[in-house]
Nucleic acid binder design. Structure first.
Lengths: 345, 345
DNA sequence: GTGAAAGCGCTAACAA
DNA sequence: TTGTTAGCGCTTTCAC
């Protein structure tokens, strides 16, 4: 592979001139420039980014860490990130963690070793993680994505308020017997906040919040578990009239389980999701859900990160960046066919 | 940020010893090793991957280029890729191209400048692209993903045969009036092959293939176009009894348009997709579709690429790698609720 | 406008 | 077992 020296030799100049010709053409006499360009083309010269990155103090790499891409909510977010960095000449180094805290640690370390300019992270549980503090202490540019940790640089919706609003909608539709279905609560700060929101709405309506039904995401068989739980409730004659699922994927799985159990949605039981996946609108009935603007979350997070990175260079006093607080984007309620009035008893 | 020299000084040894302690601990006296490790920990030393990469001939980076992550088929594939490289100490450099050939060129160039060890690519149209030949000529390790180009290193299903089998299934269900709905044919080799498969099946049954209905993906309003076209056909009194959509996303959009036009699926019209998205199974009726094993496609492609990369080092004679042909994975037909017998006239 | 030279952080001969 | 040293490919003063 041709290197800058080869080009210099062929163009009959020094490597410094080649470098200038490539990076600051205006500093080079047009004639020389042409010779360099010709030489570079003939040799199919491909500048080695590693050399440049080792020399300079920026790599142009952005580290992105997400739990999984199996949930479209994260893929959507990644699209927003891509959109935001498009045209900036930056590239994405991507890692997924499967919600595993150990992998989170490793992944971040790896990304930092590659000298990424900044980090975009969705942590399983940002509140109980010292990681972010460590990063801040080290002066690493970083934005949390989806995690809504107050006083932290992050972009998200207000999960608690959003969940409360969704559940209120169920209550207004006449439901009193509402159960929340969720992944492992201890493993996700978002699920926890959504559960709090559920409680807020129930209590505000004078209803008693019920314990959450926790489903292990990693077990794969989400539908299975819903079905089991449902059968149990059915035997007790205590089937709720509505399910609030902590995310749309779970809602979809639950609906399937309900269907297989011979229940009709929404006639026998209503279902409300959280996320606002696009596919939800294509179903029939369409999935009622609390919509978070996933693409926008990704886009904003990336934009803030870029500002942070650029600002770090600009401002003499570090820490004066204005992207250091939480950015809470608006959520919305999508009323869908999966929510109706509870059945008459 | 602490550097290898700082660690050496603190541990009272040379930088070479530090390097050894970190990379080949067995070459270092236990006592020295301990001192180095202590020094590294105290200084929070984080080895700079760029330095190592510039020196060695491998970066451990894999370049991944996909059209979009908005279609779960690619997100799934990426999951498979991640799974395959997990534990190998490699990282993914990700770029999406939005099916734009110009972006494809740029992206690849960028990835090569970063000195990725290999490339995993889904091209809009692999057949009409000289890119892959160039890469091969340059000796770049590379696997195509989803593109089924014979005689090329790629992993895919047999799109033509798979489509034919799907359409045959429609024919067996009694349909004779089947139309294929697709994105721009000229922009995707897969769509083209699937259209050929459609033709094969029609002709094998003595039916006349109809022109494909092409929908511009980039226009965003996919449903719109389906609706327009449908209205047109309706006026002509020539509504087909079945739609074969070149991918599941399109099928979902089409179903929505049909629903909005007051048509029932599958009572008035049947719909068959292609991809086998997981969400298709959660719908009701469930989406009938030609299933390609997306995660496996990603996984195999990555595995082959790794073999190629490692082999390149091992074998003296380059080009002797056995991952140089096309790997065709088996497809399947998922019979779903969206396909039924055609309505009686 | 151009060149010589230092050096980014690391690894791998080669010596000791 | 450890140290010295020569680069990997590039950018960037500092001279000319």
């Amino acid at each position: 592979m041709a290197d800058i020296r080869d080009v210099a030799q062929r163009a009959g100049c020094s490597i410094a001139t080649v470098s200038r010709a490539l990076n600051s053409p205006q500093l080079v006499r047009p004639e020389t420039l042409a010779r360099v360009q010709a030489a570079a083309a003939e040799l199919k010269f491909r500048p080695n980014a590693l050399g440049r990155q080792l020399r300079g103090e920026r790599t142009g790499l952005i580290g992105v860490m997400l739990p999984t891409l199996g949930n479209p909510v994260f893929a959507d977010c990644l699209e927003g990130i891509e959109a935001a960095i498009d045209g900036t000449g930056r590239r994405l180094l991507l890692v997924t963690t499967q919600y595993d805290p150990e992998r989170e640690r490793n992944a971040i370390e790896t990304l930092l070793q590659q000298r990424v300019d900044g980090l975009l992270l969705t942590l399983a549980d940002a509140e109980h993680s010292a990681l972010v503090d460590d990063l801040a202490a080290e002066g690493v540019a970083c934005q949390l994505v989806y995690n809504d940790a107050p006083n932290r640089p992050c972009v998200s919706v207000d999960n608690r308020a959003a969940a409360a609003q969704g559940v209120s909608m169920l209550i207004e539709a006449g439901h009193r017997d509402i159960v929340m279905v969720t992944g492992a609560l201890h493993a996700s700060d978002r699920a926890k906040r959504r559960f709090l929101g559920y409680g807020d709405a129930m209590q505000a309506a004078g209803l008693t919040p019920l314990p959450a039904v926790e489903i292990d995401f990693n077990s794969g068989a989400r539908g299975e578990r819903v079905r089991e739980w449902l059968a149990q409730r059915e035997r007790d004659g205590a089937r709720p009239t509505a399910l609030f699922c902590s995310n749309d994927l779970l809602a979809l799985g639950a609906m399937r389980a309900l269907r297989e159990a011979g229940l009709r949605v929404p006639d026998d039981i209503s279902v409300l999701g959280f996320d606002g996946l696009a596919v939800g609108e294509l179903l029939s009935p369409t999935l009622a859900t609390v919509v978070q603007p996933s693409v926008e979350i990704g886009r904003h997070a990336a934009q803030r990160l870029l500002a942070q990175i650029d600002g770090r260079a600009a401002s003499a006093a570090p820490g004066t960046v204005d992207a250091n607080h939480a950015l809470i984007l608006p959520h919305a309620i999508r009323r869908g066919g999966t929510v109706a009035a509870p059945p008459r008893r």
